[in-house]
Design a protein around this nucleic acid. Structure first.
Lengths: 195, 195
DNA sequence: ATCTACTTAATTAACGTTAATTAAAACAGG
DNA sequence: CCTGTTTTAATTAACGTTAATTAAGTAGAT
């Protein structure tokens, strides 16, 4: 039950992510689901409402994914942890590509009606992620696995690494190419921070 | 002379960059210039033509900017060169913000009719930039200013650094914050590659 | 018989575009 | 240096399409 509602959201996620909010007509979404346009209004108040519904859900998934990062890395060496986070990010882009594309697009280019909410959401994610990384670095320093360098340097450069990889992942869709980039970038990063 | 044409392109650059192709109505562009919508057709065949005109010009400026990178760095130490390139990228985003936003948006999310041309343009830039970086790294290795590490590692990790910074530059518009990020990220990067 | 999940049909608004027109500037010949 | 002609830059009005939205109706499950 509620099959159609779910399918509408899936199609919307894909199309909004691929062609943008203004570039996607409700008729296309309906067509993908095999239903006429007005049927959408049985489930959503408006186009904006459908979009927001997709948006909220994708932010919530994205949120869980970041939370899970903190868990993943329990009980490993600092190097393994830092590497595991990048691999997780990679898996996210691989396995939830549509969601990743959607999130990436609207994190960078939100439509006007989303701007405030988006900035707030982005700020939250950024803080969460920074905190997770900072904690890992803190522990790494205490354990003597990291070079003695101001912790903010460690955090900032790691976050920059993640951002850089996420752009490249978006572009170079070939797994081989990306895996090479990931390997190279991490090896060099680790050279810079290891004790 | 041709004042209006120029102003139309400026307004289009800003609005297309800010709100996207489908999200920008010709009427908005006209309004910014203080002219009625059909006046646009005195200079451009269609909305797509106006967009392409803006696009071609911005790609050409972007091209010059990358070319100039190769020059900028002549006769410096490898460290200075690599740092200078990042600062140049930063200046570009600062001084040509509208152009940078436009280019960033359509490099990542081109409208359908641009996809092929965009991919080709992107490929060219990517190759140009890689070549420039590779050359710098090559020379750095020969001069013994760089750690003995496979050159592709050096290139890939530097490109990842640039990408990461360009995302952050897009977000964190505060210069102080960004300059800090740049400083931290470069310091760490240099630790990893210096001899 | 009513509720749910739709459909068909209609409405409204916006947008890209074209046509007709005008005012002014640029230009050519006597 | 004027005068008639053409070009350029713009306007107003209108067209055709498409998109979002709403209203009214229908077929099947409960």
């Amino acid at each position: 039950m509620d099959m159609t509602r779910t399918k509408l959201k899936e199609a919307a996620l894909r199309l909004f992510g691929q062609k943008g909010y203004d570039g996607t007509a409700l008729s296309e979404i309906a067509k993908e689901v095999g239903v006429k346009t007005p049927a959408i209004y049985a489930f959503f108040e408006s186009k904006e409402d459908l979009f927001m519904s997709v948006f909220e859900e994708s932010m919530s998934v994205y949120n869980e994914y970041i939370q899970a990062m903190a868990e993943t890395s329990k009980g490993m060496s600092t190097e393994k942890k830092l590497h595991a986070l990048l691999v997780r990010q990679y898996d996210f882009h691989r396995n939830k590509r549509e969601l990743a594309v959607f999130a990436f697009r609207y994190l960078l280019f939100p439509p006007d009606f989303l701007l405030d909410r988006m900035q707030e959401a982005f700020g939250r994610f950024d803080t969460m992620l920074s905190d997770i990384i900072r904690e890992i670095m803190q522990e790494g320093l205490e354990r003597g696995e990291l070079a003695v360098v101001p912790i903010e340097n460690l955090v900032d450069s790691y976050l920059t690494l993640m951002d850089g990889l996420s752009i490249q992942y978006y572009y170079y869709q070939s797994p081989e190419l990306f895996e090479r980039k990931l390997k190279h970038a991490f090896e060099m990063f680790w050279r810079s921070v290891s004790a």
